[in-house]
Structures are given as structure tokens and as C-alpha cells.
């Protein structure tokens, strides 16, 4: 299963993702009786495309590939397409485990999306802009991860959840024999797993301009030891964020979706609202 998920876990060879990709590319697709292959393929295709479109507005260094003045909202809109993608990918094969896995994406989304929206809008409030590059530039003397730690932690949690990954892997759960991906073989399976990793990477990349000062060196180090290399600082910070997410997966077991929904609506959303309120009051006064 772990190898099927394209994940390098303890005991796996580091070359596993490459081997697994080649194996899936060579494998034949699978059909189930009375399925809806067109819809499933739309979902499987939308997932990696949405991840790339989300990543397009993230400043990789000091400028984004597409410098959008409403980049934060665009990122959110693209990442939300994953709900739809996983749901129809699970629906398409007309099979029980697959459908149940696809449906698990909906309560997961209902749980993570509101804390996520509040967590990404809080830095935007502090910087007074929806453009990620402007938000990054507004942190030249204090990182927002320090200024608004609750929003940062909530953002990391919601990134793992939006990529239905680690503790939030219920839609692809082992208890459902793979859930939404159970009936997909070959290219379809590869697209879903790759899209999920791409989504996780896009989310981790967005944490850098929103909370970690983008391509600038940490404010405490004084003069920049590598001047003119914002992409390097961006890469270092991205590796740290991804490392944090990978470490969290080792520590936290998979959460039952119902429990996560309860946690989200009773703890995470009030916390996110309180964090946004504090930041707004400080900005306004």
C-alpha cells in the first residue's frame, strides 16, 4: 500500500517513487461495470492541473510565475477544486469502496476549509493586500509565523488536509482498500497520487510568502549572506515546511473524518476567528 501511494516510508528504497511512476505508466487502466469513465477522468485530470494553477501564483523567490493581484483568492479557488476532483474520481468507477472514499472528501473539506480560509486571509489583512508577493514584502522585520502563530499552525494543518494526506488520508484510507483510488490503475492512479503530492507541495510553497517572509532571509540574521538569491531562501524555507509536514505524518495517526469535523468546528474555527480578530484589531489601531 505504501509503495502504491508513491510514498517513501521506512524500509522503502529512495528510488521507489521513480520505479512506481514507471510501473504505473506502463500498466493498463481498469474498468468496472456500469462506470462513468469520462467523469472519473475529468476528476483525475483536474487534480494535478489545479495544483499547478495554484502553484502558478506563488512567488518562487521574489516574483510569481503569474503575478496576480488577487493571488491568495486564486490559490484558494484552485485548491478547492481538489474536493470536486477526488469526489468524482471516487464516484466514476461505480464501486462501493471507491465511492465511500470519494464521499469522505466532502466532510474533510467542510472541516478544513473554513480554518484554511481564515488562516490565509489573516496575513492578507495584516499586509493589506491579496497579492502573495506584497504579503511577503510586508514581513521584512517580522515574520507572520511569529506574529500570528495560530494562523500559521492552522494553515499547515489545513494544507495536509487539503492534500488529503497524512493524518487526513481518510478518502484514500487503507480501511477502504485505497478508497477513491481503489479502482484506478495505471495512469489514473498515478494522476491522483501525483496530484496529491503536487497539491501538498503547492500548499507548502504558499506558506513561504504568507508566513515566512518569502524570498528574504530571516530578519534576525542581519545582512543577507547570499544577496540576490531569493529563490535559494525560498527553497530552504520550502524544504523546512515540507519537513515539518512529513514529521507530522510520522507522529499523528490517521484521524477519523467525523472526529476531525468536530475538532474543526469546535476548536479550529473559533481559534482561526480569534486570530483574525486580534490581527485585524492591531492593524486597525
Amino acid at each position: 500500500m505504501a509503495a502504491g501511494a508513491g510514498a517513501v516510508t521506512a524500509g522503502d528504497h529512495p528510488a521507489t517513487p521513480v520505479v512506481e511512476t514507471l510501473r504505473l505508466l506502463a500498466k493498463q487502466r481498469r474498468r468496472t461495470p456500469a462506470d462513468d469513465p469520462a467523469l472519473a477522468r475529468i476528476g483525475l485530470t483536474v487534480l494535478p492541473v489545479a495544483a499547478v494553477l495554484a502553484l502558478a501564483v506563488v512567488p518562487l523567490g521574489d516574483t510569481a510565475p503569474v503575478d496576480l493581484d488577487v493571488g491568495v483568492v486564486w490559490f484558494n479557488a484552485m485548491e478547492v477544486l481538489a474536493w470536486f476532483a477526488v469526489w468524482v474520481a471516487g464516484w466514476g468507477p461505480n464501486a462501493v469502496t471507491s465511492l465511500a472514499g470519494g464521499y469522505r472528501m466532502l466532510p474533510l473539506g467542510l472541516a478544513y476549509e473554513l480554518p484554511h480560509m481564515l488562516a490565509i486571509i489573516t496575513p492578507a489583512i495584516a499586509a493589506g493586500s491579496l497579492a502573495p508577493a506584497t504579503i511577503a514584502a510586508a514581513q521584512h522585520d517580522l515574520w507572520y509565523a511569529v506574529w500570528m502563530p495560530a494562523a500559521f499552525v492552522l494553515y499547515l494543518v489545513s494544507v495536509a488536509a487539503m492534500a488529503f494526506w497524512g493524518p487526513f488520508a481518510a478518502p484514500l484510507g487503507r480501511d477502504l482498500a485505497g478508497g477513491a483510488v481503489a479502482e484506478h490503475a495505471g495512469l489514473g492512479r498515478l494522476l491522483l497520487h501525483a496530484g496529491r503530492w503536487m497539491l501538498l507541495t503547492a500548499g507548502a510553497a504558499m506558506a513561504v510568502p504568507l508566513f515566512l517572509g518569502g524570498g528574504a532571509p530571516p530578519p534576525i540574521t542581519g545582512p543577507d549572506p547570499f544577496p540576490g538569491l531569493p529563490a535559494l531562501w525560498f527553497a530552504v524555507k520550502l524544504v523546512v515546511v515540507i519537513g515539518l509536514l512529513l514529521a507530522a505524518r510520522r507522529v499523528v495517526p490517521m484521524l477519523r473524518t467525523a472526529r476531525f469535523v468536530t475538532l474543526a468546528w469546535t476548536v479550529l474555527i473559533p481559534l482561526a476567528v480569534a486570530q483574525a480578530l486580534v490581527v485585524t484589531v492591531v492593524v486597525l489601531t
Binding site: L68, V73, M78, V80, L106
Partner: peptide, 21 residues
């Protein structure tokens, strides 16, 4: 109208999924 258009994609995707719920 970048903001309005993007928000429509965002809201309508969530709305369709809530319809599925």
C-alpha cells in the same frame, strides 16, 4: 474583475460539493 471571478470559482465549487452532501 479578477476578484469577483475567482471568488465565483471558489464559492461555486464549495457550493456544488455541499450540494453533494
Amino acid at each position: 474583475l479578477g476578484y469577483l471571478g475567482t471568488v465565483i470559482v471558489l464559492m461555486m465549487t464549495i457550493e456544488m460539493m455541499i450540494m453533494a452532501v
